[in-house]
Design a protein around this nucleic acid. Structure first.
Length: 586
RNA sequence: GGGCCGUUAGCUCAGCUGGUAGAGCAGUUGACUCUUAAUCAAUUGGUCGUAGGUUCGAUCCCUACACGGCCCA
């Protein structure tokens, strides 16, 4: 189907592939621009016990809460004062009225109101700017004049240059910008109105395409309409919005100003869509499981707590969907996945947001090695489809995603990065404690060899796993939901996938021995009673489900935000979340 | 939790050794019928993050706090 004919009628539903082509080119351009940007080491928060996510000391949490509480009280007092003063809640805030720029625009809006409908919704555009440029941008001026193309375009005013009786403007819509040429002669009184309009207003223009003397494709306006008066001035047109805090708090301004930012979120959407189509094609069923859990499970993390009033029971926002998804495999849904939010009541950083998006999938009659292959296929497909190649540039580094990825055991990685260690003593607690002491790693009295190994791995090896790598054979001690290895009970059939020293995915053959699972829950409860706030609860119904028999199954968790960071060359998780968590404004 | 840095006009930023603040853009007024960060002339706009302290005097020095950034845990 001729894509332009279609898009002229449905301007908002454009052809995916054409968009993808352009997107890919621009992403590559952006990546080149960012070459040399500072690299970062990022730690990961995913799935099973991630030792980096140890709870901070209670004292820290307490003081943080106290600080927030004080602030809340302050805020409550302020807003109470406003209400008691009798100001309507919809009324302008005082700082707005004190700003003469906003006052000026309010006065303009008031004049528009006096003259009729101030916010009309009957202007219908017939074309998008970018499509007009694509379709007519190369045509000669004479050809355009000989065969006039009449268009109606609409968008936000981004550039305004008034030169007496003629003016140039640029409006922007989701596809790009197009120039409008306005003349007093053609527009009459409307031209005088236009001279008072502001950058940021949303307007419509109808006219004929032509080429200016400098050759720029433009619309010669025969009619212009103010559609929305913008009351707040946009940031500096040249420098844009540089304040990162403002970019996150007022994402709408960021999206108006920064094409790069729009591109990241468009690409995020395409990544998620690709993941869905990839799994759908393999016979996976997408499901939705509860976000409100009576018992938080499936990961080692501190949960958010809430309360169900009618039932008068405490509930938790989920920290992982794992145990519910595995109940479904018991029920016979042998391939299921869910892409949804998890919540963890922990710190906020460039790598952590309290709510984040995770893909979890479960595949019966498969093991962790099948999932490593699945990850390779998925990542290959994402790179090929969305980046146009298997070289991923991230913060100045290049990662090679072609072929299959390295597979190394945890012990191999430890030995590779700690050449002095004795391979024969890697499972001796006393020996490992000595290693930890030498490396400045703290440990608890109850930490076994597995826990100590992981601490050493995370301190010395993890951040060096730059090229795509599967680290596997995780100790059983730190993998309470993973299936024990048949030949070596010290380890489980579990892997994590790293790129750039960051954990992207975590997968394992599932523990489907109900009695083993019950014992591991009991161990977790013991740890919790000993003060480990991240230790898991005993989930009796989950054990009961396993007692009915869960088929041999493998499961995988993929941190979508981290995957998007990698594929969009974004240094902070806040760059890939439309509305990242922020402290309340002061 | 710790360290370092930042917070000045709507935006981007200057502001020296402490003497009550400036530029560009935006806005306003005027000129201008092919501009490209349009140009030219004039001009409005500030509780210098908040609260204390030192000082005759604080944007500047000190303390605490708030928010943000980077690094470390």
């Amino acid at each position: 189907m001729p894509e332009r004919a279609q898009s002229a009628q449905e301007p908002l539903h454009r052809d995916e592939d054409a968009e993808g082509e352009a997107l890919r080119a621009r992403v590559q351009q952006a990546q080149r621009r960012r070459q040399g940007a500072r690299g970062l080491q990022v730690r990961r928060q995913l799935g099973q016990p991630d030792q980096e996510l140890r709870a901070r000391p209670v004292a820290h949490q307490g003081s943080a809460h106290r600080r927030r509480d004080r602030q809340h009280h302050g805020g409550a007092r302020r807003s109470a004062r406003r209400i008691h003063a009798g100001e309507p809640e919809a009324g302008p805030m005082s700082d707005q009225e004190e700003n003469h720029l906003i006052a000026e625009r309010r006065a303009k809006l008031a004049r528009i109101r006096e003259r009729g409908v101030a916010f009309p919704n009957d202007f219908r555009r017939t074309a998008l700017a970018g499509e007009l440029i694509a379709a007519h941008g190369e045509r000669a001026a004479e050809a355009l004049d000989a065969d006039p193309v009449r268009v109606k375009v609409a968008g936000r005013l981004r550039v305004k240059r008034v030169m007496g009786k003629a003016s140039f403007a640029k409006i922007e819509d989701p596809s790009g910008q197009i120039q409008i040429f306005l003349q007093r002669e053609a527009l009459g009184d409307a031209y005088e109105d236009f001279k008072g309009w502001d950058v940021g207003d949303i307007l419509g223009a109808e006219g004929v395409l032509f080429r200016t003397r400098t050759g720029e494709l433009s619309v010669r306006a025969e009619r212009i309409v103010m559609l929305v008066k913008s009351l707040r001035p946009l940031p500096d047109k040249w420098h844009g919005i540089a304040d990162t805090e403002l970019r996150y708090r007022q994402r709408y301004v960021d999206l108006i100003m920064n094409e790069d930012s729009r591109r990241v979120f468009a690409l995020r959407s395409r990544i998620v869509r690709y993941v869905r189509s990839f799994l759908d094609a393999r016979g996976f069923l997408e499901v939705e499981t509860p976000m409100l859990h009576p018992i938080p499970g499936g990961a080692a993390a501190r949960p958010f707590r809430t309360h169900h009033n009618a039932l008068d029971v405490d509930m938790y926002l989920r920290i992982a969907p794992e145990l519910y998804l595995k109940r479904l495999t018991v029920g016979g849904f042998e391939r299921v996945y869910e892409i949804n939010r998890n919540f963890r009541n922990e710190g906020v950083s460039t790598k952590h947001n309290p709510e984040f998006t995770m893909l979890e999938l479960y595949q019966a009659y498969a093991d962790y090695r099948d999932l490593m292959t699945l990850v390779e296929d998925l990542v290959h497909g994402l790179a090929d489809t969305l980046l146009g190649g298997r070289t991923v540039r991230y913060q100045g580094a290049e990662y090679d995603f072609s072929g299959s990825f390295a597979r190394l055991t945890i012990e191999q990685i430890i030995l590779a990065h700690n050449p002095g260690l004795d391979p024969a003593r890697l499972r001796e607690v006393a020996y490992l404690r000595g290693v930890c002491d030498a490396l400045g790693i703290g440990y608890g009295a109850g930490d076994g060899a597995g826990k100590l190994q992981i601490e050493i791995f995370e301190k010395t090896g993890e951040h060096k796993l730059l090229q795509p790598t599967f680290a596997y054979a995780y100790p059983t001690e730190v993998s309470p939901l993973s299936r024990r290895n048949d030949r070596d009970p010290f380890i489980t059939d579990r892997f994590e996938f790293f790129v750039g020293g960051r954990e992207i995915a975590n997968g394992f053959s599932e523990l489907n021995d109900a009695e083993d699972q019950a014992q591991r829950f009991r161990d977790q409860v013991a740890r919790k009673e000993a003060g480990d706030e991240e230790a898991m609860y005993y989930d009796a119904d989950y054990v009961r489900a396993l007692e009915y028999g869960m088929p041999p199954t493998a499961g995988l968790g993929v941190g979508i935000d981290r995957l998007v960071m990698l594929l969009t060359d974004s240094p902070s998780i806040r760059d890939v979340l439309l509305f990242p968590h922020m402290r309340p404004e002061a």
